[in-house]
Amino acid sequence: MNDFINLLKTKELKATPQRISVLKELDKKGHPTIDDLYNALKKENPSMSLATVYKNLATLKEKGVVIEVNTAEGKMRYDIYSKPHIHLVCQQCGSIEDVDYDQSLFEYQTILETNKDVKIDRMDVIATVRECSVCKKK
């Protein structure tokens, strides 16, 4: 909980109970859709509306605390952006796995910045696979 409060403070956001709830749910690493997130939050906070979830997600996205993960199924999924990482997305079962960046990706980012004369705030990398370790176990 303290980590969430500090994370919000570093992004100049108030640590509201709703934002803490959203981050706690996203921290479970399920990469939920907005509906999944809302349903999970509703169990904990029956009075929370879908509009509140949308509003808080939008604010957290705008400040770079939360990112959208675009999947082949067309539904946006959400994740906390605590550090650079790759999203490994399975086309077959839809699972999403977080994979740490290799040093070469940081080097590539530097090359891109130099070649394009830009400063990259964040690289969103999605690797799509036909079958993942979850599918192979079935």
Results as ranks from 00 to 15, higher is better:
L26R: 06
S82H: 01
A40F: 02
E107Q: 10
K138T: 15
K11I: 12
V89W: 01
V118N: 05
L26M: 05
K29N: 07
V125T: 10
S82L: 07
R77G: 13
A15D: 08
S47I: 14
K28Q: 08
Y108Q: 08
G74S: 11
M123C: 05
K24Y: 02
F106W: 03
I126R: 11
D35K: 03
S133T: 08
A51L: 06
H87T: 04
E62Y: 11
G94C: 12
S133E: 14
G64P: 10
K43H: 08
I5A: 05
H87K: 13
V53D: 02
V69G: 03
K137Y: 11
N70K: 07
V66P: 12
E131W: 08
I5K: 08
D98C: 14
M123Y: 00
N39V: 04
T59L: 03
H85D: 07
V89Q: 05
Q92E: 07
V89C: 12
C90D: 06
C132R: 09
N39I: 01
D102M: 08
H31P: 00
H31G: 00
E25Y: 06
K61H: 01
T16Y: 07
R130Y: 05
D124P: 02
C90W: 01
D98S: 15
P32D: 02
G74E: 13
S21I: 01
A127T: 03
K119W: 07
D36N: 05
D117W: 00
A72H: 15
Y38K: 00
S104I: 12
N2V: 03
N70C: 13
E44K: 03
D121L: 12
I86D: 04
V118W: 06
V66C: 12
D121S: 14
K9W: 06
D35S: 07
H85M: 14
D3F: 10
K75P: 02
F4K: 09
A58C: 01
V99Q: 12
S21E: 11
S82C: 01
S82Q: 04
V125R: 06
I96S: 04
D3R: 00
V99W: 13
T128N: 14
A15F: 03
S133V: 09
K136A: 15
T110C: 03
I96C: 10
L41C: 02
N39P: 00
D98P: 12
D98R: 15
V22D: 12
L8Q: 09
Y38M: 00
Q103G: 09
K11T: 10
A127C: 03
E113W: 02
P32M: 09
Y38N: 02
M123Q: 13
D124G: 07
G30P: 00
T128P: 00
